[in-house]
């Protein structure tokens, strides 16, 4: 039931790199992707992505899985760029004023590859970082916003509770499905309308139980005097020298490359 680009346990240097640094590097890589021009820039980004895959020992298949849902969109991008309504010199006419241009197709492929690389980079992050570490990293980076009255503590609490409760709610849904099956309900049979209707007896009790849990949690938070401040984390990850080095090196490199390429 876990999403396909979920955490893949490992002990590689990429796994051990501080989550905040990885987030920052992802931002830097995105900057690099969109500011570098031409195929040289793309080749550079491609090799960086491959380097990441090697260091993190991440199978290519896992990393590309995130691109699955948008494969159709990417294909359409290539086709849309390949077609032109004008009459370009190198075009091959198809129908009326519509023609196919190799240059356009190449440009479309360039755009598609760029998106795929972005997806691979994001996958590298989620495959080598536990959800909790990611959550903490986001929270740490959001902290400065607290100065402008953004309820950072509340947001962080909501996100971390949501994360913790995903398996709990999955279990609850499973229990309800089982109970309704025991009463003869059938799931996954019949036409589309019947299938959707079958889920009513599951979603209603699930929502009701969610509200009950929310009440219980709210009571618990009140009972522990939660006021919306950020939580103190014991054993909070500290930046090591390696982390700083990678952070500075990575950001500098991406800025320079982005400008020159």
């Amino acid at each position: 039931m876990m999403p396909s680009v979920a955490y893949l346990p490992g002990e590689t240097p990429l796994h051990r790199l501080d989550a905040r640094v990885k987030l920052a590097l992802l931002a830097a890589y995105t900057f690099l992707l969109f500011t570098s021009d031409g195929w040289v820039g793309l080749a550079c980004c491609l090799s960086l992505a491959l380097f990441g895959l090697v260091v993190g020992k991440v199978p290519l298949g896992h990393a590309l899985r995130g691109a699955g849902p948008i494969a159709l969109l990417l294909a359409l991008t290539v086709i849309a760029n390949a077609l032109s309504l004008a009459h370009p010199a190198d075009g091959a006419a198809i129908v009326g004023s519509l023609s196919f241009t190799p240059a356009g197709m190449l440009h479309g492929m360039y755009l598609a590859v760029r998106i795929i690389l972005l997806i691979v980079a994001a996958a590298l992050l989620s495959l080598t970082t536990t959800p909790v570490a990611l959550m903490d990293a986001f929270t740490a980076l959001l902290r400065p916003l607290g100065r402008w009255n953004v309820p950072v503590g509340d947001v962080a609490m909501m996100c971390s509770i949501a994360l913790r409760f995903i398996p709990v709610i999955a279990d609850e849904a499973d229990r309800i499905v089982t109970a309704q099956r025991a009463r003869g309900a059938r799931f996954g049979e019949g036409g589309p309308v019947a299938r959707v209707r079958a889920w009513g007896p599951v979603l209603v009790p699930l929502l009701v139980s969610l509200f009950h849990r929310a009440d219980a949690l709210a009571d618990m938070l009140d009972g522990r005097c939660f006021t919306g401040a950020l939580r103190t984390r014991l054993d909070a990850p500290r930046m090591r020298h390696v982390d700083w080095a990678v952070l500075l090196g990575g950001c500098t490199a991406s800025v320079l490359l982005g400008i020159y390429l």
Binding site: V132, C225, A229, R231, R233, L234, D235
Partner: peptide
């Protein structure tokens, strides 16, 4: 609500 026992125990005190 925490992912480690010690963080859970620290949660309430932090709020004080």
């Amino acid at each position: 609500i925490s992912s480690s026992v010690q963080d859970e125990v620290a949660f309430g005190i932090g709020n004080l």
